[in-house]
């Protein structure tokens, strides 16, 4: 492991010294644990603190470090009795992480995290929820916690899953490898028994979840989370977008774009799943025209939905 630089060690010491001053004789072990430092490194740093202080460096102007029976005291360091202020990036890291967890369904708005975070935000001069709002994606309460438990305990899960792209429900057993969020949605990755391969699922499309007693051997290294990975043989579709539909090019990964007259844009999209394309075309209506790939898709999709309105 690379040795931390003098700057990194100083940063850590300027946090450790005030904490030890206030704690009045904590164990060396606790200091190491709290500040994630090896005992040897901590002792070396404290030995150095012992030689530091202020002009004229007479014994009474040096900081005093006493280590006795595994406990540590620091005295004559009143100028270091508080850590130095949080920088904006540290403050943001703290508040954003906390705000993200608080926005997960089921989080207690009056719980320890909420209370602690409000105090930190107060010191920083910001208001939670007003100045900073972090949303990781909506998922049903409880599902996320169950999935995380299943990952940690390496237990299989059975899910009733809605395949959005094919508009169908499927039941399958999955060995859950990881739960994470990306691009504003929650995902589960794992080995799917139905597919016989590693698959990724959107948590909000899991209609039912049962954590089974059956365990599995977790992979040593779960594959890196990938949100969108088109296959070369996925069908492509070419669309002409009216000016009002140009947002499609910003929202979806497009393979090719070409400016046309009148502010229109011609784009090539990967449309691996038919229901996905149907939704896009229904939404765009008269503002898009399929030029190539699935020329009848829009009319067919509209006809299916219309059937529902003429049935009565």
């Amino acid at each position: 492991m690379a040795r931390p630089s003098a700057g990194d060690r100083l940063r850590r010491l300027l946090a450790i010294v005030p904490w030890v001053v206030a704690a009045d004789g904590p164990t060396v072990e606790e200091v190491c644990r709290r500040f994630n430092v090896a005992e040897d490194d901590l002792l070396a740093d404290l030995e150095m603190v012992f030689c530091c202080g202020v002009h004229p460096f007479t014994p009474d102007s040096l900081m005093d470090v006493v280590i006795d029976e595994g406990r540590v005291w620091i005295r004559y360091a009143e100028y270091f009795d508080r850590p130095f202020r949080l920088s904006p990036d540290e403050g943001l890291a703290l508040v954003a992480a906390g705000a993200a967890i608080l926005a997960v369904p089921g989080a207690d708005p009056e719980g320890a995290l909420a209370r602690g975070l409000r105090k930190v935000a107060g010191v920083l001069g910001v208001e939670l929820g007003e100045d900073l709002d972090v949303r990781l994606g909506a998922v049903p309460e409880g599902v996320l916690a169950s999935l995380r438990d299943a990952v940690e305990q390496a237990r299989q899960v059975e899910i009733d899953y809605y395949v959005y792209g094919r508009d169908e429900r499927t039941r399958r057993v999955v060995e859950p490898h990881s739960v994470f969020t990306a691009e504003g949605e929650w995902y589960l990755t794992g080995f799917c028994h139905l597919a016989g391969a590693e698959r990724r699922f959107r948590v909000d499309r899991i209609a039912e979840l049962a954590v089974l007693d059956k365990t599995f051997v977790p992979p040593r290294k779960p594959s890196a989370p990938q949100v969108f990975d088109p296959r070369p043989d996925d069908p492509r579709v070419v669309l002409d977008l009216a000016p009002r539909a140009r947002w499609v090019a910003e929202q979806y990964p497009i393979e090719h774009a070409e400016e046309r007259s009148g502010g229109r844009l011609r784009v090539t999209l990967v449309a691996g799943e038919r229901a996905w394309l149907d939704r896009l075309l229904l939404r765009l209506g008269p503002h898009a025209r399929v030029v190539d790939g699935a020329p009848a898709a829009a009319a067919e999709a509209a006809t299916r939905v219309l059937a529902r309105y003429s049935a009565r």
Partner: peptide, 14 residues
């Protein structure tokens, strides 16, 4: 962003 250092200033990992 330096989340760990921020935590140190609040008293480290309890």
């Amino acid at each position: 962003l330096p989340g760990t250092q921020a935590l140190w200033k609040l008293g480290g990992a309890p």
